[in-house]
């Protein structure tokens, strides 16, 4: 399963879930966002049991991006119990994303 694309409403709902939520804030014009996308989808598959893996297009959800204080993209935020627990900016490898998750789960 690939990462799910979220609207602001869906995001708020997803945060109520028991499982931790990983969100990739991205935009179509961001070249590096595109490069990490296939790796991110593989992460979504690999961690589907332990984690909800989602994406937010900040052009479509500017309010959410503002509320979450996204200044640069790609930024990954891991939410636990509905709160941001840690973030990762522009990871350089798929392994770096996996390490970030392992560190926080």
């Amino acid at each position: 399963m690939s990462a799910i694309h979220l609207s602001n409403e869906e995001f708020q709902k997803l945060l109520q879930e028991k499982k931790p939520v990983l969100v990739d804030y991205w935009a179509p014009w961001c070249g590096y966002c595109r490069r990490i996308a296939p790796a991110y989808d593989r992460i979504a598959q690999e961690y589907s049991q332990r984690l909800l893996v989602a994406k937010v297009n900040i052009d479509e959800e500017p309010q959410l991006a503002h509320a979450e204080q996204i200044e640069v993209i790609p930024t990954l935020i891991l939410y636990k119990d509905g709160k941001a627990a840690d973030f990762l900016v522009a990871p350089e490898s798929q392994a770096a994303i996996a390490q970030f998750i392992e560190k926080n789960l």
């Binding site: 070249g31 595109r34 490069r35 790796a39 350089e92 490898s93 798929q94």
Partner: peptide, 12 residues
């Protein structure tokens, strides 16, 4: 380590 293309993938 990440996805196909290397430097080339960043060139639109």
């Amino acid at each position: 380590k990440l996805s196909a293309g290397g430097q080339m993938a960043l060139t639109e």
